[in-house]
Design a protein around this nucleic acid. Sequence first.
RNA 1: GGCAGCGUGGCCGAGGGGUUAGGCGGGGGCCUGCAAAGCCCUUGACGGCGGUUCGAAUCCGCCCGCUGCCUCCA
Length: 501
Amino acid sequence: MKTKIEIPAVKLYNTRTRKKEEFIPINPPYVGIYVCGPTVYSDPHLGHARAAVVFDVLRRYLNHLGYKVRFVSNITDVGHLEGDSDEGEDKIQKRARLEQLEPMEIAQHYTRVYNMSMAKLNVIPPNIQPHATCHIPEQIELVEKILERGFAYVVNGSVYFDVPKYAKKYQYGVLSGRRLEELENVSRELRGVEEKRHPADFALWKKAPPTHIMKWKSPWSVGFPGWHLECTVMNAKYLGIPFDIHGGGMDLIFPHHECEIMQSVAAWDTEPVKYWVHNNLITIDGQKMSKSLGNFITIEQVFTGSHDRLSKAYHPMAVRLLILQTHYRSVIDFSDSGLAGAERAYKRLVQALKKLNNLEFVGGNEDTSMQAQIVEYIRKFYEFMSDDLNTARAVAQLFELAGIINKLSGEGKFVKTISKEVGDMLKNHYSKALTDILGIVPEEEHVDSTRLYGVLQILISIRQEARARKDFELADRIRDQLKELGIILRDTPQGTEWEIE
RNA sequence: GGCAGCGUGGCCGAGGGGUUAGGCGGGGGCCUGCAAAGCCCUUGACGGCGGUUCGAAUCCGCCCGCUGCCUCCA
């Protein structure tokens, strides 16, 4: 029985080339990943959860394969315009005025909420989580550099990127496939459009109106940085140019990531990124979920069940599994029943893990075809993970393994049908695949104290005695009342199991 | 209007010229004092019309329906 798993080369779909490509790091074994983080002016929603989970799994997988990953994900705490505001008011500033708080207080609050939600989803924190407002000098420097190289112009204290000039020397729209002529017909109603020479030009620095609170000194005006600048600055600073993987939602391809490329090329004559990876969006009733449409569900609402569309509170791992049961480049149409299904499925996977940990593989009466299946499902797990991070297919292999584990546990603690070698392999890979790579972890089952744990053991043994003398009234009362407290008892041939809900 | 993409069984979702995706749910059986969990069996799908092919859910064309980007967004 061959128990060595060969892991195929990782392939990723590169938006830049519109093809799946073999992943070859620029400086192996080091890998730099930058993922566009949240704008911290409101509660994070399911869309944030998706991007975070997808790139968390990519990072975990590359780590698992032995790469040394530096994962950078920013906090945008300044500089994005409010879409429905005709004044072009800064999002965070607007929110601050409404709530009578300092802008930084808002940003700090929502940064904390975001990080807490990510922790519940078991997303590993970034190695570096840089804030836009902490990199104003670097952003000013970059604007100067682009001005020096002649790809920007100053108007009334604001600086704009000169797209037509850029397009003469370099190719425009390499990421989005957009053509410059097509953008000329697009009408803009945003303020400041009259300052731009071309509709496709975009701001590198904006002069702040007198009422604006968040503003900094610059050579051109007291103002604030343009909307695409921070990412260029921070990925160059922490990962170097070029770096390996830049991730984010598909809605960022144009204009945000296109502008990042132009800024980087204009400043250093170098495209910043080798592999552009984009996750698809989450829809609700077939419509995109977004802040501006107001149809979003926040992550916390899912965890507490406090939303009209939710019938109950869901376990964070149900959200994580729901996301991973879909390929990252497909749309997820969100539903309550989908979450409910994912939660059941999650329990199935972790129950199998618990059972597996209690089994001992002794061999002696090996079922060779089942052993071959185990090895094959494990092999396929890695094959699908390497094939453009196909977590949907990879998870399907784990369900197959869970079925086998359940079957094996019917043999009792000592399993003869599987050799020690294959059994250990199963233990090792099932657990790693589920918890380390996919990040799906069992519920923490700590009982508050060793005393309570002892009390629980006493109740279970009293109930066993009651069952033995067929006092089912007492046995059921103990089980029902514990259930009300969220402790579930399950009688199995191996004894009574308990689980905290 | 331009660009990109999607339409798969009751629901969610992979796949992508012939060979079981998987999950949730439904039905039947086993186990069990009951319950839960689990096991076995089972149901059933590729938007429509043409074409290519020995063979199409998969390729091509047209049609219908839906979505995203083109304005902040994950």
